[in-house]
Nucleic acid binder design. Structure first.
Lengths: 329, 329
DNA sequence: GTGAAAGCGCTAACAA
DNA sequence: TTGTTAGCGCTTTCAC
């Protein structure tokens, strides 16, 4: 079926294109009669302005890009949900690209965003990003850029992330307060900065209390965590508490513990950092430090709007974590 | 910073815009020397073609719209993930809009898609959609339209959904085969068509075997299911098997059962329908009929491509379910 | 109160 | 081998 344009409407009504354009925008110059005629025809023909044409002419665009390793999961989906909600409220539309944690796909996604002349760009770095060059170019092109979750180490970018320091402190203090001395702390991918921060903070707090021994481990998957716990808990000397840096690790840990029929919290206490969905699904409910994707999404969007409105400088923001008390410690 | 256009490149090189355009596309007419010069400059200036201009001129668009109640959850996020992956492979970009199960927001999203001249549109109906008029218009505008999960009842649309009939049969047969006679079957929102289908099929199968008694219940949340199970399992006469229509229900059921320290599968068997994430996280792993969002996404995209390529008629497709054997029955 | 014309960035038919 | 021109749909300045 024919696509309706201003031209088409102008032909039908015997008006010029510019008159139709102005009538549709209720421009004061146009007579009421003309306005009515134009609006009525436009409605009956289901006219919708062509955004491509508008963007081209105005050099403005209501598209906002978002590059993320993967959409599905415990954290990013709620982050994206928050961002979409805010975008809608502010008249923007979201373009989502998955990098699949692949540097090449990430670069490709970046290119797509640039070609689409996005007004702003949210990026969660892939684990394999080697160079920030491409992002530097985005900045140079004056495209507001807000990194979230996996953010670059360089200071000259806008970043929003979980307050890993506070969150880790909360978790460590929780465990220390309950007098645990033998702690198994399991962390994710060794190379990620969030891993480093969480590990360092957690250990720093623990080291302040006498006799506390922390056994730090890295696991890059649920299954690895599961296997690790299985091994450790079939030994004679068992930790009395486990700290899980993420939902992914928590899954593996809980599976092993349940399989070994070890009682939580009597035989082992568990404290996790989590988006919140998982801990409440487990019996007993796991005590965790909330690291909400949704909250982070709101914060990220807030910063984005500031950038779009011309804010200078580079913000480095954090969401505040809260402890959600379950029955696992 | 200045945005680079063909015009800009042509000025620097003293060439015409069209020559630059052709050189960048490696048009055979253009001399190797010119091509090289153009490419080099374009690269060094980080030229990216303006998609808006291309779309406007070509009347083609690589945007595909997707309207969904909410991005986050067990099912839609993996659906979207699949669709994005396929879009990328095929040179399309995904625009995601949340309806929030609100009819007005759904209409608004539809409008945005039309204004953006999307090449195709995926829609999961909101629970509050009253009229299909707006979608009819999309069809009339020859925009390929593929409904998924919550699909309209009218036959004249492309639809892809979980094969609820087969999936429910699988689940029922699994339970029957294990000689269970007292079955508690818990379903979701009573008004949804998927609920009706699943309930009817499940009961139909069960009714074929002598002495099997099914206790059908509706629960619209995890907590409701949890409470329900708690009540039922504190009575004297307990069911020997529970069927859970969805992940949401499964969560509540398992929590209650674990709280009551009832052994799975010795004291009660559990069979669920699930996207697959949850059942493997529970100990013992829950046997379930897989209703994969990812698979459905692949199927939906396949149909979309057919439509884009001009396929006639309206497909009504279903993903095939498979039984994933755990240790809960 | 309305129209003509230019131009956003790009491509392609036609000319040279 | 390269340039000129028109036009995609829209907005806006300037003219009438």
């Amino acid at each position: 079926m024919e696509v309706i344009t201003l031209k088409r409407i102008s032909q039908v009504l015997g008006l010029s294109i510019s008159t139709v354009s102005r009538a549709l925008k209720n421009h004061p110059d146009i007579s009421q009669n003309t306005k009515t005629r134009v609006h009525e025809l436009a409605n009956s023909l289901d006219y919708e302005p062509n955004i491509n044409a508008i963007s081209l002419r105005s050099k403005k665009n209501n598209l906002i890009g978002l590059i993320v390793p993967t959409i599905s999961g415990f954290f990013y989906d709620s982050f994206i949900s928050a961002v979409e909600t805010e975008c809608r409220k502010n008249g923007y539309t979201l373009m989502i690209l998955q990098s699949g944690n692949d540097a090449e796909q990430e670069t490709e996604s970046l290119k797509i965003c640039r070609q689409n002349r996005v007004t702003g760009l949210f990026v969660c770095l892939s684990t394999k990003t080697k160079s920030m060059d491409a992002f530097m170019k985005v900045k140079d092109a004056d495209i507001p850029l807000v990194f979230f979750d996996k953010v670059p180490t360089e200071p000259n970018y806008n970043k929003v992330s979980i307050d890993d320091v506070t969150a880790s402190k909360f978790a460590a203090n929780l465990i220390i307060k309950k007098k645990h001395k033998e702690i198994l702390a399991i962390f994710g991918n060794e190379n990620l900065s969030i891993t480093k921060t969480r590990l360092n903070t957690f250990n720093e707090i623990c080291s302040k209390t006498k006799d506390v021994v922390v056994d730090n481990k890295y696991c890059s998957s649920s299954d690895e965590a599961r296997e690790l716990v299985r091994k450790i808990f079939t030994k004679k000397k068992k930790p009395t508490a486990i700290f899980c840096m993420s939902d992914e690790i928590l899954i593996g840990v809980v599976k092993s513990i349940q399989e070994l029929k070890i009682n939580i919290p009597n035989e082992v206490a568990i404290v996790a950092m989590s988006d919140g969905m998982l801990p409440t699904m487990i019996t007993p409910e796991i005590t965790y430090v909330e690291t909400s994707g949704y909250k982070l999404g709101l914060l990220a969007f807030e910063q984005m709007i500031k950038c779009i409105n011309g804010a200078e400088g580079n913000a480095n923001l954090f969401t505040t974590s809260t402890i959600v008390t379950g029955k696992s410690i």
